[in-house]
Design a protein around this nucleic acid. Structure first.
Lengths: 215, 215
DNA sequence: TCCAGTCAAAAACAAATGTTTGTATAAGCT
DNA sequence: AGCTTATACAAACATTTGTTTTTGACTGGA
């Protein structure tokens, strides 16, 4: 019994939107297709006009959002000319995606374990690519003296963790606007990488005896 | 039919240990009691000699580990005399607990959403207490000039995120020993809070125009 | 030796869950 | 108008899952 005004494409989009939101809230294993169907406004079985399994639903969400993230990095971050500007842009992008924009992004970090081996590999590959962009920025910044980092890999992890952590507490309807939040975190990251400041009077950040002298 | 050599206390410990490990790996919703029973080496129904529900299992794990964490903070971190030393100790403790020691700690950050409202409140209360210790350290450090932080609350979140993120990638059987890891992250945190360095020649960290002049 | 209490197996149940199938109506093209 | 395809409903199925109940053997003390 086809419903009046039903359009496949619209239903599909609704399904993925509702699924992302639901999974972000309760986790992949924590949701059931009946609840999803209810949110979409459709019967359970009808979901299978658009997906072949619950697992595929998760995979498609993750695959879509990771590619979106990577495209966004290429379009905005890599367009900047200096490591510092690129890093700032990266922070901005990552935070934007982890707050307002997409509930799907949240899933991308927390629901990897629910992917079947084959799918897991694919998504992790995208994740690695994404994080590699950050690492390259850090590496170049060290080379040209913009940053002072002892262990780039660890610094990368620290930054990712710091930024991703935002989505566990940030409330879009709170008093802290995203651009303010972004500015604070940009500053945190600048400190973390021992960035040169634009203030000509200030000495470069020197941290304890370990810090490597530059130039 | 009681099994030979069966001791209640031992079985109970086995159950909680196995449950923590399983949940840490697959998530609360992702595990089933039959798998747990198998890991323990017991029949499903027998679990109910020790728990009254699956939910109680999760709650007891979280409650136990959060109290353990808080006790550890009191016993080690708060014993230090300066904000800097306290912060270093906090980082060390947090990382220790999030790597080797307890799979239960991992759960404490990722499985809160699976708690029923009443239990959720209780655990969050403990979590808030734990994080308040960190915030107080930061606040005192700002007061006495050890740290330079514009927004203590955000800095707290950034640190927690950074440290907690460790448990998603750290491999205890890898080549990076925990104490090395700890040292790196201590340095990261010191940078983050704009800590004064022990090197008398170095100027305090000044970060862009926003940084607040101290003294 | 006997007893009370401890501990776990075995079986069963109801509810929940992912998925399949058959059917019927709407949409859109010829 | 008629035909094909797209879309969704309704019902059902086989499993899985948390939980309960019953039974009986083991343990330690009197």
């Amino acid at each position: 019994m086809r419903t009046v005004g039903s359009i496949g494409e619209v239903t599909e989009q609704k399904i993925y939107a509702a699924a992302a939101e639901l999974i972000a809230k309760r986790g992949y294993e924590g949701i059931n297709l009946r609840q999803l169907a209810k949110d979409v406004g459709v019967q359970v079985g009808s979901l299978y006009n658009y997906i072949s399994s619950k697992q595929e639903l998760l995979f498609n969400i993750l695959n879509g959002v990771m590619n979106e993230l990577i495209d966004a990095v290429k379009a905005t971050v890599l367009m900047e000319y200096t490591p510092t500007a690129q890093l700032q842009a990266f922070v901005k992008l990552h935070i934007q995606y982890h707050t307002n924009k997409l509930p799907a992004v949240v899933i991308a970090t927390s629901e990897l374990r629910s992917l079947e081996p084959e799918n897991y590999k694919k998504i992790v590959r995208l994740r690695v690519e994404y994080e590699t962009y950050l690492r390259e920025i850090l590496r170049k910044g060290c080379e040209d003296g913009s940053f002072t980092i002892e262990n780039v890999r660890l610094c990368e992890y620290a930054i990712i963790g710091m930024l991703t952590g935002v989505c566990v507490w940030y409330n879009p309807r709170g008093t802290l606007p995203i651009n303010k939040l972004t500015n604070y975190y940009q500053e945190f990251v600048m400190r973390l990488v021992g960035a040169e400041t634009r203030d000509a009077n200030a000495r470069p950040t020197v941290v304890r005896a370990k810090a490597v002298a530059r130039r």
